[in-house]
Design a binder for these strands. Structure first.
Lengths: 136, 136
DNA sequence: AATAAATGCAATTCTCCGGTTGCATTTAGC
DNA sequence: GCTAAATGCAACCGGAGAATTGCATTTATT
C-alpha cells in the first residue's frame, strides 16, 4: 500500500499518450551524467548546510562543538545537517579521541560541477544550432 | 509568537559563547558569492525538476502538456515544479495563444556554477597551503 | 455558437524536514 | 575513580513540500 508517493497515475484515467511531438525521450542528458545529481543539489540547497560546506572546505577538520559555535541553531541541528551532507557524500568524519572531526570531501562537488557544466554546454549547443538555423 | 523557526536559542539557556577557536566568522566565502545560491540548489535538488531543466535546456520552449507527456506525474505536479523553477529563476514562460511555453533561463545556472567553482577553488587553495606547510 | 483543448486555481492529504528537548553514553583530565 | 566535556540517540512538533482531485477559465477550431 501507499503507492510510494512518486508512482502515480496519469492525467485522465484513459489517454493513450497524445504524442504530439514529445521530444522528451533520450535527450542525451538524462542518460549520461545528471543521474544522481539531484541528491547532491538537495543537500546543498539549504542555507545552513551550504554555510557548513563553505566553512569546511576552507581546510581544517572541525568538531561539532566548533561548528555549532557561531551559529544560532542547536548542536543537534548541526549534527543532523552534517549527517545529511555525509549522506550526500559531501563531508566525512574521523574520530579523534572523544570528539568527531568533520572534513570536506570534494568528489561530489566535482560531480555537481560536471552536471552544471553539462547543462550549460547543452544550452550553448542549442543556441548555436538556433543561430545556425536562423542564418540559413 | 512563532519564533520564525530559525531564530532560536543556543544550547544551554546561558552560555557566553565558548569561543574555543571559532574559525567560523568571515571565511571569505559567505561574504562574496554563495549568498543566495541555496535556493537555486534547492530548486535543482529534486529529480523531477532536474529532468525538466535537462529537457528545457535542450533548446525548445515547450508547453505544460508537452512536458507532462513522458512523465508519470500529473500535469498539475509538473506545473508546480515549473513554478518552483521559475521562482528560482531557472526557467521562464511566454504566453503563446492558449498555451504557455516554458523555456530555460541560463543565468541562475551560471550563478550556481560560480558558487561551486568558488568552493572548489577554496578547497584547492586549502590543499595548497597544507602541502606548503608540510614541506617546510 | 458550441466544443474541446490547455491551463489556472483551490482544497486536501500525507510525508519529510528542520529544529528542539531530554537523557544516555563515551572519554579526556584531574 | 570521579567529574565534566563532547557526542549520540530518541521522541516530538510545526511547517513546508510533493502530489492528487475537482472544477473553473481562457482560447482555438469547427
Amino acid at each position: 500500500m501507499s503507492p510510494s508517493r512518486r508512482t502515480a497515475a496519469k492525467e485522465p484515467p484513459s489517454k493513450p499518450a497524445p504524442a504530439r511531438s514529445a521530444p522528451l525521450k533520450s535527450s542525451s542528458l538524462r542518460s549520461s551524467s545528471l543521474r544522481g545529481a539531484a541528491p547532491i543539489f538537495a543537500a546543498l540547497g539549504d542555507e545552513t548546510r551550504l554555510r557548513l560546506v563553505a566553512v569546511l572546505c576552507a581546510g581544517s577538520a572541525l568538531s561539532i562543538a566548533q561548528l555549532t559555535s557561531g551559529t544560532e541553531i542547536t548542536r543537534q541541528a548541526v549534527t543532523k545537517h552534517l549527517h545529511v551532507l555525509a549522506q550526500a557524500g559531501l563531508v566525512r568524519h574521523v574520530k579523534v579521541g572523544r570528539e568527531r572531526r568533520w572534513e570536506f570531501e570534494p568528489s561530489q562537488v566535482e560531480e555537481a560541477r560536471r552536471s552544471l557544466d553539462l547543462i550549460a554546454r547543452q544550452w550553448d549547443s542549442a543556441l548555436g544550432r538556433l543561430k545556425l538555423a536562423v542564418e540559413r
